[in-house]
Design a protein around this nucleic acid. Sequence first.
DNA 1: CAGTATCCTGTTTGATACTG
DNA 2: CAGTATCAAACAGGATACTG
Lengths: 121, 121
Amino acid sequence: MSETCVPTGVGPKDTGFGYTLSLIGGKYKMIILYWLSENKVMRHNELKRSIGSISFKTLSIMLKELESDGLIIREEFPQVPPKVEYSLSERGLSLIPVLHMMCEWGEQNSVPTPEVVRVNV
Amino acid sequence: MSETCVPTGVGPKDTGFGYTLSLIGGKYKMIILYWLSENKVMRHNELKRSIGSISFKTLSIMLKELESDGLIIREEFPQVPPKVEYSLSERGLSLIPVLHMMCEWGEQNSVPTPEVVRVNV
DNA sequence: CAGTATCCTGTTTGATACTG
DNA sequence: CAGTATCAAACAGGATACTG
């Protein structure tokens, strides 16, 4: 691994890990990015319904942070009732491979994967 | 990305992301794993010195969690003064590529990388 | 519909002192 | 040396009510 990953004597935020984690860490950010990568464009309520467990307020905050970090794009349509669409930015898109690895490792390692399963029922 | 990444209607912990994050999230866990991957075997104090900003108590907790999650191995030598060595397990080793991507993305995206820097001082 | 404002709780991390 | 115990601060996240 790159030796510049973790220079000695700096705070966690100054490392490559820490920076990436500060953007996509937390309970829901990866999940939001995942849904946007699947559906291309989604509205606030649509994300809320897809994620389910997230609270309305938290979703708002996450979206605002993801936007200010340049990972997603927020497009507002001036109409009544209001309509806002969210989508991945180029920068956000570049994170998908990282998300992919996080997801894959988790899926392959969360269950001990027994050698043989249910040969006979 | 795998559709099983984020099944609808489950909590964040039940997703591939969430599981991986629950193991290596937090301020210091990736950094600890990084140092162990570089040095193979390290003692408690050695890790403390390398990381610097971490508190003694937090390091203890992180090491205990990493151990109970099967990512690192703790070997205790029965002697005075005590000696304990930490190293990566097979499972921990399998996480290194994931850490690598997190680190690389962070390094390549943390600074806007200006086109031209300081031609004349 | 897409938020904001307020209040509250639980978890994470830090500081300090003590122990085998 | 390698911890544990205790207290305190900071932050993430949830519940509910209100707004353009």
